[in-house]
Design a protein around this nucleic acid. Sequence first.
DNA 1: GATGTTCCTG
DNA 2: CAGGAACATC
Length: 723
Amino acid sequence: MDSPSDLFGHQSSLISPFDPYPNPSDHPTPSGGGHGAPNPSSRPPYPLIHHLLQPGGVPMRSGGQLHPQRYNREEEEEGEMEREEEEEGGMGGGLVGVGVGGKRLSGAALVADWSYDMMRVKRLRLESLVKGDGEIGLEEEEERGRRSAERGNRERGREERRKEREELKEQLEEARGRLKTLQEKVWKAFGERPAQEERRRSGREEDGDGGMDEEEEETAEGITEEEEGGEIDDLSLSFIPPSPPFYSVAKRDRKARDHEKRMSEEQRNVNGGGGVLLEGVLERAAVWMGCGVVRGEWEGFGGGGGSQKFAQALKQELGSAVARVIDRVLRLYTQNDPLPPSIHPSILSSGERGNEGGDLPPHAFREQSEALPLVTRRPDNRRNTLLPPNNHANNRTHNPLLPSHPLPPLRQPHPHPAFLPPVSRHKDSSPFLPPSSCPLPLPLLHYTMQQLFTRSLSHLPPLHKGDVMNSDAYMEGNPFPSQHTSSSHPSFPPLSLALMGGLDRLDGGMQHLHDRERERDGGMRGGGDGGMRGGGDGGIDSGMYLGPGSISFLFWKGERERGLSPCHLKKAKLMFFYARYPSSNTLKTYFPDVKFNRCVTSQLIKWFSNFREFFYIQMERFARQAARDGAPCLGRDSRETPLRLGRDTELYRILNMHYNKSNDYQVPERFVEIAELALREFFTAIQTGRDSDPCWKKSIYKMICKLDSPVPDSFRLPGCPIG
DNA sequence: GATGTTCCTG
DNA sequence: CAGGAACATC
């Protein structure tokens, strides 16, 4: 049997920080080694309440975050392995969020946390029961076979049972201490001081008939009974709100009715004030804990059915109340509406509430929301990702990308214009984020997204097999209705691809052009690993990244493996302004938060290949248009200064739209120059008829390849653009 | 064979 | 934007 310290010593690991990654099947990563393969059997399955915490049938392990301070990046990294071990295959963290800088803990997390503690106690007791029963059976056999040994055996059994009792008492003491701690946390979470509670109770004691109502009398009676038996003399349950133990069926039934009654009240409370409900639940959880466990412990020890009843009662209380709260929160959340004032914020995790403690700037939560592709943004944010991007651009006479354009609300709080070059904006932070605007470690933005998606999707049919890969319910009911969504985001503008139709293949790759680049890269980051094999462990599917609009298990898995995310794509696009042909070493340098392996590297390279493709297509397109129409498309000045790429031109707009969709960044002047150069090269080639040469683009590509600029050092920082 | 690039398609 | 084919380079 687990020792109490073992049992509760596990607590800290079981109260996992919310579990950003679904651990699909606890499969060890293909890379094997390094990560301790989670062993499902090493953790208790909480058979009693596990499913009760899954309102939608989706395992939603509540990772009550009791250590918000863990949520800085370093600790997150350090805890990665531990977390993996802690994961239990449920949609971890789907319910409650991280207490990122939060002053309060999630009520649901605490309930789940507490429930889990109680389950541990119960399990403890059941184990002792099994053990005890076994001993009893043995005695009976001996009684049949060897009467002479009967007395001795009995005495021995009694002795052992006494030992067991001692052990159990110790364990209960531990449990009690644990409960006390938890309750203090609950009180803290709900703003009620234990002292206040104490006052309340003592005040009640002074009232009426000696300060005891029926329940209290029963409690006292129950304890007295136990004390008479000499079993729980020191289990004074002082921190547990008074409530009866169940020592008679009649009283239990009556109590059950009372509980039903109060549950109805709670139902009302949940509609009007969630905090009250939670407190009630927790109080009664303590009641069951204080009475059920203690009582059942001894009943069970004597062979009674206390465990069953305790389980039933616990099931009732926690099942209905907790699940109801969770359901409600989920419902509220999935409605994408702001929380109605009737919902007490304390029933939401701090992750849901953003930062309540004021550690984060006011826009922090807004930025978190930016990371939620499926969440409709607030009306004041014109960049709603649900809308076609920049529709306004085509309908306005002035260029929306001009620096004079009002900044979008997201950026307004920041003193610097959004279009300043990154180097001048930040010394120590990501170039993408204003100094004050990155209150969370960037991965947490992803985590938040994952977390919220987990919640949102828990009530929806799976869109992708990955969404629910580790959901038993979905696994059973939905055999992977996989629909790849990667092609649902057409990026190319309506452009006559016929232009490209007659182009012949280049007779050579550009690889040789990278020789110089590689040499340069070799010195950029000491100890370049000499290629892409360095980080490869083959642990990531090539389909890990499915595009900014498709959040899937594969994406989560990618996050788990520190793979590529939509933010990395964004960063890559911005990086394209500096480097059209980044080598793999360059990529490794500038994506330090990505765990590189062959697939990730290929993916990044593929991205840049796509960027180039788009770039060249646009260049050629506008060059041809200029050659045909005299380049009116390139602005008024284009006749005086041929083929200038002004920032008010259509080409500029298109490029900016593609690489800098949300205007996080000012297009570097250097990029504008290079684009102009490329444009002129295409234009000249077309004008002079060189485009009839099958290899006519090659020289242009080569030229562009040489024009890569050093990527600002600020790009070396981990993270990615918000939103 | 691994890697990188372009082209093409969806 | 992904996937794949074809090709080049090492």
